[in-house]
């Protein structure tokens, strides 16, 4: 038993290292001088087949120049960071208004077209973005929202996956809870706000965390809907530019970009795990 555990643990440790190493290196490289990083990035594509590639594990000289550059010298990083934060907050707010209510309606009420609507939501959930991209663009153009922030925010307020996730969770809630409330005189909305939502906290937390990650890392939607408005791009899109021309500040930018996601995960860690366990997806 112990030997199996040791082997298991060793394998898991290797996997953990492999997963965590890029994050650690990102943090370590963010403390290197920009010139050192530029020089290191220049070795990409110029590998010497006769020897092992150098892996930098520590900076030659500790420096906060990268952070100074992105926080003070180049205000564009902060501006793009704020764009990312803006989209994320507005999308989450929009989802908070729409998704729980829709999931509740689909789970608790019977109305004509309910199944068809749910089927449509499932279909949308399965379709990749590229399929729905063109209709979205045409619709947004018609509405005059192309190249505005609402072109990114509004479609994401109706993410089908989280509707499905919450609906499935709400289906698992015992009817007795709601009936008890109705007996006490609570109406539909009161039941929803005071009974259903508090009970669904774990899954909502999970959905918020996952949605945060989705919004924080979105690339296709801004590239498609904000093609002519580079000022409104989020930071996730601009990181693609690094491959073309290294500036020596990539790792500090990445570290800064990781931090909000890390803290959100820390906050909703328990909810994420509970949500995965409690949802009927398992």
């Amino acid at each position: 038993m112990e030997k199996r555990h040791i082997a298991t643990r060793f394998a898991l440790t290797l996997v953990a290292v492999a997963v965590l190493l890029p994050l650690l290196l990102t943090a370590v490289y963010s403390l290197c001088a920009p010139s050192e990083i530029k020089e290191y990035m220049g070795t990409r594509g110029n590998y010497n087949q006769d020897q092992f590639m150098e892996i930098k594990l520590a900076p030659k000289q500790f420096s906060l120049s990268q952070f100074y550059k992105i926080l003070v010298e180049d205000e564009a990083v902060l501006r793009l960071f704020c764009n990312s934060a803006l989209y994320t907050v507005l999308v989450l707010l929009g989802q908070a208004v729409v998704i729980p209510a829709m999931a509740y309606a689909l789970s608790r009420f019977r109305f004509p077209g309910r199944d068809a609507l749910f089927f449509g939501i499932i279909m949308l959930m399965l379709l990749p973005f590229q399929v729905t991209m063109v209709p979205n663009v045409l619709t947004l153009k018609k509405l005059g929202l192309m190249n505005t922030i609402w072109a990114v925010i509004l479609p994401n307020c109706f993410t089908p996956f989280y509707i499905f996730l919450l609906r499935q969770y709400m289906l698992g809630l015992p009817k007795e809870i709601l009936e008890a409330g109705e007996i006490d005189g609570a109406g539909t909305f009161r039941c929803f706000f005071h009974i259903v939502l508090p009970v669904c906290k774990p899954i909502i937390g999970c959905a918020v965390a996952l949605s945060f990650a989705d919004c924080w890392n979105m690339v296709e939607q801004p590239l498609t809907y904000l093609a002519q408005n580079a000022d409104k791009m989020p930071l996730s899109v601009m990181f693609n530019q690094f491959s073309a021309s290294p500036t020596g500040t990539e790792f500090a930018g990445a570290t800064l970009y990781i931090l909000p996601a890390l803290f959100v995960y820390l906050y909703f860690q328990k909810d994420i795990l509970d949500g995965i366990q409690l949802s009927e997806l398992k």
């Binding site: 800064l256 931090l259 909000p260 890390l262 803290f263 959100v264 995960y265 820390l266 906050y267 328990k270």
Partner: peptide
Amino acid sequence: AKKIAIKGLIAVAAL
């Protein structure tokens, strides 16, 4: 962890 996360988010936002 939640307290640390909140403080961290506030710190990042303030920074």
